[in-house]
Write a protein that binds this DNA or RNA. Structure first.
Length: 271
DNA sequence: CCATATACCTGGCAGC
DNA sequence: TGCTGCCAGGTATATG
């Protein structure tokens, strides 16, 4: 569910409401991807200074460290004024003076991890190899070209790997490649500079637009206020196998790359 | 170092 | 209705 836009929309939907809140209690349900790494009681009494995002991680800055949250494939957050009874897929409650932050995640590929600081383990290890943030000034075309030049893997898989640019997941990778007219199977290091420039712009555009739209509503995305997004309404290729390309009417193709589905138009994305 | 495969886990859906 | 098999937004880790 959550790629960069969904994570960012989630962040925006509760960051200002939780800022300044003091933790009253923390409850953990079934195990997530990694152990929290700290007894929940140690969170009690600390305040939430703010919420940042790095790639698809949400970073809750606390008095004495950072609580890192990841939504995995099926996670979502809810920030409600008061506590409601937890369902079987609710695996973390952070009860604060300003509301309850709840992590809901059926598949449990998500995570809640404590780190004494962003430069300590485990944060350093999890965040250390992440690529550029696509919606910041730091996402420079030149660095993008340099990064791709070193990679012989198909461009789609390089985008997903997240070590050149973060936040582009399986949906937006297909969408960005369609926007820039690039076939997903092309080796990253074979792309000409002008084509990388197109891709660079497309990544920015598709992610920024999805954030504006409130995130993807594919399947069941909701932000921390329970609102759905609208991106699904305008997907160009993702999930449209066999349907006519919105540009040229050629049936959209679906292939598998690195055990993930990829969608593209064989005519608009010739090479 | 790089590219690719594997593992984690549940729920929804198509097809029978 | 109920079963089976397939598929799903991510990414650390293992393997070649």
């Amino acid at each position: 569910m959550p790629e960069l836009p969904e994570v960012e929309v989630t962040r925006l939907s509760f960051a200002s409401r939780i800022a300044g809140a003091r933790v009253l209690a923390m409850h953990m349900g079934k195990p997530l991807r990694w152990p929290l790494g700290v007894p929940p009681a140690l969170l009690v009494g600390q305040s939430v200074m703010g919420v940042r995002r790095r790639g698809k991680y949400l970073l809750l800055d606390m008095d004495r460290g950072v609580l890192m949250l990841h939504l995995g494939m099926s996670g979502s957050l809810n920030f409600a004024p008061s506590q409601i009874e937890a369902g079987k897929n609710d695996h973390m409650d952070l009860v604060t003076t300003q509301g309850v932050l709840r992590l809901h995640d059926p598949r449990r590929f998500g995570a809640a991890v404590w780190s004494d600081s962003e430069t300590d383990e485990p944060a350093a290890k999890l965040l250390g190899k992440l690529g550029m943030e696509p919606l910041t000034e730091g996402f420079e075309l030149k660095l993008c070209q340099q990064g791709l030049k070193k990679r012989a893997a198909p461009i789609k898989q390089v985008l997903l790997a997240g070590d050149v640019v973060v936040g582009v997941g399986n949906i937006y990778a297909s969408e960005a490649l369609f926007m820039s007219g690039i076939r997903p199977t092309v080796k990253a290091n074979k792309l000409s500079a002008p084509r990388v420039a197109k891709l660079h712009a497309a990544i920015r555009q598709v992610l920024a637009r999805a954030v504006e739209q409130g995130g993807s509503s594919l399947k069941d995305f909701v932000n921390a206020q329970g609102n759905t997004g609208y991106f699904q309404l305008e997907a160009s290729v993702y999930g449209r196998a066999g349907l006519p390309c919105r540009t040229c009417s050629t049936p959209i193709k679906q292939i598998v790359q690195g055990q993930r589905s990829t969608f593209f138009c064989p005519v608009c994305q010739k090479h």
